[in-house]
């Protein structure tokens, strides 16, 4: 699966945009890329921009899970931006929508990741009843 990872930032929040698909062949690479990005910016929180992603396998999901755990351990938060088509479907089916805050725009996502109160309509945190 061919994919391109682009670095960006909104304010102080690191952003990594995925173009193409995330699967078993590049999930580890994506994970390492994001960790490196966070380290280079000396930031805790991360926004994964999936607006240009067109495929997400279970390995891709797992890399997001690991990144979430990594960010959380550092005291930051992970937010997802822009779920489209099959990627959104994958998020829905696997229940990941409930695991990470998801926003439509980078600014909203950065807001969610920044530790502020989630805007109305954002995903319910896991375990909430």
């Amino acid at each position: 699966m061919n994919a391109k990872f682009d670095d960006g930032a909104v304010g102080l929040t690191a952003v990594v945009s995925v173009q193409g698909g995330l699967d078993a062949t590049n999930a580890a690479l994506f994970e390492a890329h994001c960790k490196k990005r966070l380290a280079s910016l000396a930031q805790k929180s991360l926004v994964i921009d999936l607006r240009a992603a067109n495929f997400l396998s279970s390995a891709g999901l797992r890399s997001i899970l690991i990144l979430g755990k990594h960010v959380k351990a550092a005291g930051g938060r992970l937010a997802i931006c822009g779920l489209q088509g099959v990627v959104r479907e994958t998020f829905v089916i696997s229940g990941f929508l409930d695991l990470f805050p998801v926003a439509e725009t980078l600014e909203q996502a950065a807001g969610l990741a920044g530790g502020g109160p989630p805007p109305p309509g954002a995903a319910t945190p896991p375990g909430h009843r």
Partner: peptide, 15 residues
């Protein structure tokens, strides 16, 4: 149609 539920092994208190 399926009931909602997250993948197994991630969220301890998932229902």
């Amino acid at each position: 149609e399926l009931p909602k539920g997250p993948v197994l092994g991630v969220v301890e208190e998932a229902v």
